[in-house]
Design a protein around this nucleic acid. Sequence first.
RNA 1: GCCGGGGUGUUGGAACUAGGGAGACAAUAUGGACUUAAAAUCCAUUGGGCGUAAGCCCGUGCGGGUUCGAAUCCCGCCCCCGGCACCA
Length: 864
Amino acid sequence: MAVGDKYNHQKIEQKWQKIWEELGLYKAQDFSKRPKSYILIEFPYLSGDGLHVGHGRSYSALDAIARKRRMQGYNVLYPIGWDAFGLPTENYAIKTGIHPIEITKKNVALFRRQLKSLGLSFDWSREINTSDPIYYKWTQWIFLKMFECGLAYLAEIPINWCPECKIGLANEEVIGGNCERCGKEVERRQQKQWMLKITAYADRLLKDLDGIDYLEKIKAQQVHWIGRSEGVTVKFKVKSFSPRLIRPGRKKSKVDEVVEVFTTRADTLFGVTALVLAPEHRLITDCLSLVENRKEVEEYIKQSKKKSEFERTELEKEKTGVLLKGMYVINPVNNEKVPIWIGDYVVATYGGGAVMVVPAHDKRDYAFAKKYGLEIREVVKGGDISKEAFVDYGILINSGKFSGLESKEAIKKIGKWLERHKKGEQEVQYKLRDWVFSRQHYWGEPIPLVFCENCAVKIKNQKSKIKNFSQGELLNPGWKAVPEEDLPLELPYVKSYKPTETGESPLAHISEWVNTTCPKCGSKAKRETDTMPNWAGSNWYFLRYIDPKNDKVLADYKKLKYWLPVDLYNGGMEHTTLHLLYSRFWHKFLYDIGVVPTSEPYKRRRSHGMVLAEDGRKMSKSFGNVINTDDIVNTFGADVFRVYEMFMGPFDQAIAWNPKTILGVDRFLAKVRNITLGVIPSSSTLSSRASGVPMKSEQASEGRDDNLEQLMHQTIKKVSEDLDNMKFNTAVAALMEYTNELITQYGKLKTEYIETLLLLLAPFVPHITEELWHRIHPKLSEKRSIFKEQWPGYNLRLAKSKEIELVIQINGKVRDKTRTNADILEKQAEKLALKQKKIQTYIKGKKIKKIIFIKGKLINLVID
RNA sequence: GCCGGGGUGUUGGAACUAGGGAGACAAUAUGGACUUAAAAUCCAUUGGGCGUAAGCCCGUGCGGGUUCGAAUCCCGCCCCCGGCACCA
């Protein structure tokens, strides 16, 4: 590598990558006395397409931070692994007939090669793979612990079912109500699914956000997703006009039936003129016999069942409903008779599946009342209810003894009144739902549970021996955990991974696997055939990096204590709700059972923007606009690629790929090579060619002789701070400026300036700087890497300018500038300003009313 | 509808944390040097307008305000991106 020579990036990058690996430069040391820094990137989901430039963006950027921290003396853990289970691999397997295990092997090799070609400083000795049985043993183990603690339960819930592919679909696979793959309309089907009680952690997941450093918008998304609201659950007694109050087959009188309604606006209770129930509401099925217009109601329910979730929530803007004739409820605050409706705009799974209709003070209720001719009764003053609903707070009217109160106060008082009279309870509701944990697919972790009919019967009948069962077993009679010593429960090798006609997982086909014996009583039992979702393995992977080979526990507690929490976690914006929430949930659970030492996994979370294609669209195989990292690395080299990805724009913003800007980066690095090799006399191989850099050096601008040192200190400060704040683009810009200035002042360079340039650049440009470092220090052994050098420090005093250009303003407008020393005082500055000819012409004949002086910056003369 | 982020040259963007020189750093384009030529490299110009020039005026989505001074702060509005969405 010399000026004039073509720089052979391939040769040099490979050379150093090999040396670094041999030196074990990036191995993190457990229990080192140096301060630890755990830097984490979201591990890639394996696909046959290989590494995408989007991966490269965050990996290079975080690599720069990791490298800088090492140079600053930190013991850095920057690990990598593979998110390997999941649908895309399974679909590819179905299409090609190659087994997912084989596909995964191939993809791992591909990703590993590509990542290594970028010169990323991962600690490869800690590599993990979620589809590896020694890894998913612990995924299963965590699940069993949750089962044991009663956090896992079976529920019959609707799933998206594609009748063409005969497969259950995840919500993400349903596009506009149709199957993503075949385009056929998706149906709703009830299916038994394992659920995890994340709702039990809702409050803590919300509250603990206060103590951690997540990007504001990420926190906002989590808060929104959890959706906490305080209110009161009001009990409305059900009455019937019909004398037949006793239903056959049930002893309880209809009069005892109560509909519970959740509201955040107890202050509007006196304005209730109807109740609306979700079509799935229990009361409707229970009391259908009492309904006079039974046929009409049944027809409505049938129609709404046909609608997909999509139609019910997206298309159907207008609210519909049917009155339940012959029944009514009693409003507990004023004992009024209130009609009951059913309407499919009411969400069955939230707040008990029933809402009270207060047309005067809720937009939806207003529209509903207008459509069906319900009374609109004003109970909060402040709006004009003849025109629209008044939804703000105000003073209560028409509200009995609560009239005259302000809404906020009324909410509290009415809530308490209801509680005192046992007509309601103050409550907190969450939008967050429990997590559907079952997948009817092959390529995932088998759920390690067994169903035993014998045990089920025992639990139902023998309540006395209840102590012998775990909470999970009691909650799910007959279900047993696979014993811990039998973990991992390995995924059996099958030939066909196609889901079955019935919607069961392909594992259901393998009778020798399904049929087993109960680990508790030894009788015949059947295995669960569902597998875990893709999220399962990625929920806790960062823990396994800390102790990847441990076969006794998921990770050694002392090691966890040393490394946790993760200091910086970076990933895509698309994972900031679900992945982050699920992962925090599991972590909190592990904390509760004493497996991990912290209640939060990630101290700081940042997200990177997507890299879009040149056309501004998302990169996608179907558009044919995907850019593979190999192409860029082959043409320009890893260093150019890395700097380009960091320079292209603000890290957290989406940005389109622009091949022209890459050239600018390539030119910049060429300049760095040239100036380094041209200046240092000891690099004998090229001293004769040093003049190959035609620089505008000779006419270095006047008055700027000794400011190179100052610029150096400023640059160190800027690059250090920008890296900490993840402002990679401006850090690179500062390095470009510094380099340009070194070129302009080519005759006056000291070795220190060049060394600093290389050290500052090293985290961004590891290969070139390492090579140049050894060129300017020819006696240095190859083992003495630049990355073992110390990160340069700066001197604030030296970074400060001695001279400034004082800005002279008149009435706030810049009229002149003049060079002077930086610590000039107001009086002198004033004199200096008044001396300027230009200024004199401006103030001639005018009176100076006021002078504003900002030290080291400007003076402003205020005139008439 | 709600929440979050944003709107600056031809383009990506900088300056926004704390009000003080708008356009750093790149890219693009044009002209020039070198070359038989091209590429590469180097030099100059590159927000708009007026002016021979010195220089002046305008300009950070729109309209107002605060201030000696606003891209930055406040109020109202428009538009774009991301997320959530009949959550009572």
